[in-house]
Design a protein around this nucleic acid. Structure first.
Ligand code: ZN
Ligand code: ZN
Ligand code: ZN
Ligand code: ZN
Lengths: 161, 161
DNA sequence: AACTGAAATGTTATTCTGTATCAAGTCTTG
DNA sequence: CAAGACTTGATACAGAATAACATTTCAGTT
């Protein structure tokens, strides 16, 4: 059992299904989900939280998959490039996409107390698109993140969960 | 003459007026705009672009104001904390606020070709606020950034401006 | 099957970004 | 003036990301 959004869910199924989706997508698009890439995605899916590149690297190193920074950064570049993983700029960290498959411009809620990160299902950037259109700016990538307190951490006694 | 938004403007007046606003705000709120803080703000206003902390530090060091990282990071913490400067998370860099005074949740357009960064005047995050309200998340800070091509850099011959 | 070019890995080193820590100074306020 | 809060100085370190180059793997072609 892990935590998704701010509620519990069946995590093993969640991980397996996301991996399957990635496998299928790569097969269909002639992309190579190599061992290192697959393992990094699996780690991010399992941990189900935002992780620093070096946190991931420590796990890879312990498993003998690779122990130098480029190993994990290359895998992350691939996974981010194809939408399997998102970078949380505010935290300099990475998280598996919570809605794989659907093309989307994700937005994130980052709890500063429990450090959970939720990817919102909905498209959220309409105002930004409008502002860009007004000045003729052509958007290629978006960063939309909110930091604050999740529902669980707003009650005064919820600090140590 | 500098560049503001993606058009030209009277930059000297722009800098002076922003500094005045900051001075006034600090006086009214019993904040200390110390020499290092003032100089960092002035540098960011003058350059009128997003700068890395170490770029700023190099200028400070050349002037003898201070030469160690904490000098610039402390100044930036103060300036960001009070809204005089914004951090561009996507670039790990900092830019003077283009609309000082007004409380706002800024959004930025980052041109990947000419590296100009524009702060949009308008509030842009309504969708994010709605999504947060839906799940009971209490937003304290927002990061809204778009990367792409500014109007000047969209024509094929505009690469080297 | 051998050739070839593109993509992916392995490896070393380095650069860039940001903090922790502790000592010393300064300013405010009672 | 004394206490406390804030600011600065300085050293060291931690964390994040990339440069560069050699080597290997692999799909497609001859
Ligand atoms: Zn996603
Ligand atoms: Zn929380
Ligand atoms: Zn601003
Ligand atoms: Zn441009």
């Amino acid at each position: 059992m892990g935590v998704h959004g701010f509620e519990r869910h069946d995590h093993a199924r969640c991980v397996g299904s996301a991996l399957d989706t990635a496998e299928r997508f790569c097969a269909e698009n002639k992309l190579k989900l190599t061992p290192a890439r697959r393992r990094v995605l699996e780690i991010l899916l399992s941990e189900h939280k935002a992780m620093g590149a070096y946190d991931i690297l420590a796990i890879l190193a312990a498993e003998g998959v690779g122990s130098q920074p480029p190993v994990v950064y290359r895998a992350l570049d691939f996974l981010v490039g194809h939408g399997f993983v998102h970078k949380i700029e505010r935290l300099n960290s990475y998280i598996a996409c919570a809605h794989p498959g659907a093309t989307h411009s994700p937005a994130f809620m980052i709890c500063r107390a429990c450090h959970h990160v939720v990817e919102t299902p909905a498209q959220v950037s309409s105002g930004l698109d409008g502002a860009a259109a007004d000045i003729g700016f052509a958007i290629e990538a978006r960063v939309v993140e909110a930091e604050g307190l999740c529902p669980n951490c707003q009650s005064p006694d919820a600090v140590a969960r």
